[in-house]
Design a protein around this nucleic acid. Structure first.
Length: 570
RNA sequence: GUGCUUGUAGCUCAGUUGGAUAGAGCGUUUCCCUCCGAAGGAAAAGGCCGUGCGUUCGAAUCGCAUCAAGCACGCCA
């Protein structure tokens, strides 16, 4: 990366300057003291390093330090200048040429970090109850999780994507009871869900169970003897609905892990036993309590209820222990912010059982607000909800994925459904896709012969297909030279892809990919407007075509990570 | 009441581990197609970085307090 190259040059110069006794009282330089930043004013340079923090070691004024350091820099063809305590760096032709060459050489692997520590990671996200369709909030976890998986894989990690099915517990009974009412209604019986608010909470009164009831009656004559049969039927049906939608949304899990199997296999009981053995369990009011407050939780938690059954937390602990036993170095979970209270207690259990709680990394995502006509619509969970499928059908997979991924996970996401579906030019995903389509269009035009509108004579293509293929397949660094001055900002933006990827993967913030891709598209549009690609000057044309190809490649790579399509035409 | 997250331009948001004159998109105003896609570009206007103290050479960034918004505080899952 150019910024690391620059930092390295400066750090080496500092060491030489110290050895030469030019940095006052400074005796040694500790790596990591300085870092590169973006100059406020791009006239100063492409990158900058502020050496003010060395002042207290050297006991010299920052400008003097900067000037002392710069004497020892191996400058090659790059420009260095000092303003105050800043050393500014202007990228020379060599580095720019190498960047474009690297894009051609590495192609799909351009930007893959080198010499980084990689891990075996289990990434768990969505993990919904199989009791109904996904709502919009699930869409955010699905989009962000799948992008994060793509990103971490590209980074070099071994990533295993898992969906934890909450298919044990009372909500499945609720589901069965609700289906029973829907079936009775289908059979013409005069029954309905309770109107009493407290009673009603034992049911899912949403319409979505009506088709399930119809489906059930296709193969059954009436209600079964055992309500459990309805529970299982509805659960399997909803699971299928969820999986089909995930597929449609380009989200692929390696495994769906059923909570029920966790109970049946005895792993939950095993887990309780292990906790007991750890000595962190005590009895109170007939229940077993886990002393999680010993590990930073606010209070202790019930692990086994007075009636002998396990709590949801118990199963969750068993699940995370199981993940560790499967040999993962790191567990990353994406949870809704409404579950933040669970972080401390699950981490506490890992520590209590003698493993490192830092292996569990929980990304808490703020919720999604639906905005319709400028007004926030509260997400009623069961009534009048807009499902993820409704949203995808209205605005499309690409726009939904992009919008769901484009914000910092710490901020609530306002999803303006009208904006996303009706007003395409305000929609960033179209802006980016347009840039890609435009690049493709230029490449098409470059090899197309045209007809003169007046004479009807054929005008030969600006460049032959073979010449274009040769440009792509055996790209030479010199090719870019004729346009390198006008393309500098664009090339630097392409180069930034490398640091963006590294940063995004390490901070787990996938929205930076969305931001980057908009910025790259913007730089490309600017370049396009300022410079004519197809022209008489063949060397100039080739250099610009090479740049167009490079932009297309990087846009493609970035959009691949987002699993958003890169259209050839729009 | 306690904890977590957020507060930056009219709106939606960036701000890369504390640095130069706080940045983008949308909206507003003005320009740019005889020519590769104007679904684009160039430019202008627009700011008490919620508020108040503090830390230091330096704070949107760190600390404390305070105000506002969202979420969570079950032997539910």
């Amino acid at each position: 990366m150019i910024k690391d190259y620059f930092l390295n040059k400066i750090e080496n110069a500092i060491k030489d300057a110290i050895a030469a006794g030019k940095l006052g009282e400074m005796k040694e330089y500790k790596a990591g003291t300085l870092n590169t930043e973006r100059p406020k004013n791009s006239d100063f340079g492409d990158f900058a390093i502020n050496v003010s923090s060395l002042a207290r070691f050297a006991r010299m004024a920052p400008p003097q330090i900067a000037n002392a350091i710069i004497e020892f820099v191996d400058k090659e063809d790059n420009e260095y200048n000092v303003i105050g305590g800043f050393i500014n760096f202007k990228t020379g032709e060599k580095l720019l040429k190498e960047t474009v060459q690297e894009i051609f050489q590495k192609d799909k692997n351009f930007g893959k970090p080198e010499n980084v520590k990689t891990e075996k990671i289990i990434l768990e996200y969505v993990s919904a109850n199989p009791t109904g369709p996904f709502h919009i909030g699930h869409g955010r976890w699905a989009a962000m999780g799948s992008v994060l998986a793509n990103l971490l894989k590209f980074y070099g990690h071994d990533v295993y994507q898992e969906f934890y099915i909450n298919d044990a517990g009372s909500q499945i009974q609720k589901l069965g009871n609700s289906l029973k009412i829907r079936i009775q209604q289908e059979l013409g019986e005069d029954v309905d869900f309770p109107t009493d608010e407290v009673e009603r909470k034992n049911y899912y009164p949403g319409d979505y169970l009506i088709p399930v009831a119809k489906k059930y009656l296709e193969t059954h004559k009436g209600l079964p003897d055992d309500i459990q049969e309805l529970c299982d039927f509805a659960k399997e049906y909803e699971e299928k609905v969820q999986r089909d939608l995930l597929e449609k949304f380009r989200v692929h899990f390696d495994n769906f892990y059923s909570e029920l199997t966790l109970h049946k296999s005895g792993k939950v009981d095993e887990c309780v036993q292990k906790l007991k053995n750890s000595g962190k369990i005590y009895q109170k009011d007939g229940a077993d309590w886990f002393k999680s407050s010993d590990f930073g939780d606010d209070q202790d938690r019930v692990i086994k209820k007075a009636d002998g059954s396990n709590t949801y937390l118990t199963a969750d602990i068993a699940y995370h222990i199981d993940k560790l036993e499967r040999g993962f170095d790191r567990m990353i979970n994406i949870w809704g912010a409404d579950h933040h209270g669970y972080v401390a207690r699950v981490k506490a259990s890992i520590e209590a059982l003698g493993d490192n709680p830092d292996k569990l990394e929980i990304l808490l995502g703020q919720l999604v607000n639906l905005v319709v006509n400028g007004n926030e619509v509260r997400m009623g969970k069961r009534k009048n909800m807009v499902t993820l499928e409704d949203l995808i059908d209205e605005v499309g997979v690409d726009a939904t994925r992009f919008w769901m991924s484009m914000r910092n996970i710490d901020t609530t996401l306002d999803f303006d459904i009208e904006l996303a579906k009706t007003n395409s030019d305000e929609n960033p995903v179209f802006y980016v896709q347009y840039a890609h389509a435009r690049a493709c269009s230029i490449l098409r035009n470059a090899v197309e012969e045209k007809l003169d509108t007046e004479t009807g004579a054929k005008i030969p293509a600006p460049i032959t297909k073979d010449e274009l293929d040769e440009l792509i397949n055996s790209y030479k660094p010199e090719t870019i030279v004729p346009t390198i001055d006008t393309a500098k900002k664009l090339i630097l933006k392409l180069e930034e892809y490398k640091s963006m990827i590294k940063n995004s993967a390490e901070t787990r913030q996938v929205y930076t990919i969305c931001r980057y891709v908009q910025e790259l598209a913007g730089e490309f549009h600017s370049f396009y407007n300022a410079n004519r690609v197809i022209s008489e000057d063949k060397d100039l044309m080739k250099s610009r075509l090479a740049l167009v190809i490079a932009v297309k490649k990087v846009l493609n790579n970035a959009l691949d990570l987002l699993a958003v399509t890169a259209p050839e035409r729009m």
